[in-house]
């Protein structure tokens, strides 16, 4: 059998051609990449890592740990504040990329995966608020049910079912959010950082 015809070989060749190592982990950047605005993408990634890390620590203690242990409560604080920073950085990143019209030059998919990741993150954070199992989640769930029910989704995505919301929060939605983030970052690496806006091109 011809090695070149193997699925594995073809996949590897294609992957390496699309995203060669020097693009995946570049050691240089174009000269125009020189502004603090560029740090908010990586800051969003960094806070996502901390959000997931603190979430994993909370998972070790289980879904009522933060109510009755000072350490659990502190980890709950870490999780909450890293989420606040995550959204902070992500929104500033969004503003920056909008200001730079970063979809130019065949980067529309990068922009769109970013927007979808933002929306999925909002739903993920929302299910986190529902999973707190305190007064806040009681109130948020009884309010949110009307909004979700009005769309017809309430019968499948029951915000009053804490077990279901916790599963969505710690398994399904993070999985989607992380996958989208990976696709987004890989697209950024494939296409490179968008060059400055030029109102006209030199002939």
């Amino acid at each position: 059998m011809n090695v070149e015809q193997q699925w594995t070989t073809r996949l590897r060749k294609r992957a390496v051609a699309t995203l060669p190592p020097q693009k995946l982990l570049p050691d240089t950047q174009p000269a125009y990449v020189s502004s603090w605005v560029y740090v908010f993408g990586v800051a969003t990634l960094a806070s996502l890592i901390i959000v997931i890390g603190t979430g994993c620590i909370l998972a070790i203690g289980g879904p009522s740990w933060w109510h009755n242990s000072s350490i659990g409560n502190f980890c709950n604080s870490l999780h909450m504040w890293s989420v606040e920073i995550f959204f902070f950085a992500m929104v500033v990143h969004l503003w920056g990329k909008f200001a730079m019209a970063a979809w130019r030059g065949g980067r529309a998919m990068t922009w769109m995966t970013g927007v979808v990741t933002f929306l999925v993150s909002i739903v993920t954070a929302f299910t986190g608020y529902l999973s707190q199992s305190n007064f806040d989640s009681q109130w948020i769930s009884t309010q949110a049910k009307d909004g979700i029910n009005a769309t017809g989704a309430g019968g499948f995505f029951n915000v009053l079912n804490m077990g279901q919301m916790l599963m969505w929060h710690i398994v399904l939605l993070p999985l989607v959010a992380v996958l989208l983030t990976v696709v987004h970052v890989v697209l950024v690496r494939i296409k490179g950082v968008v060059p400055p806006i030029e109102t006209e091109v030199a002939p």
Binding site: I50, H67, W81, I85, N134, F135
Partner: peptide, 17 residues
């Protein structure tokens, strides 16, 4: 920043009704 904010301000946890 996360650790500092957590040490200073903590997080809310009003008991459920």
């Amino acid at each position: 920043i996360t650790v500092t904010l957590s040490i200073f301000f903590g997080s809310p946890d009003e008991p459920a009704i």
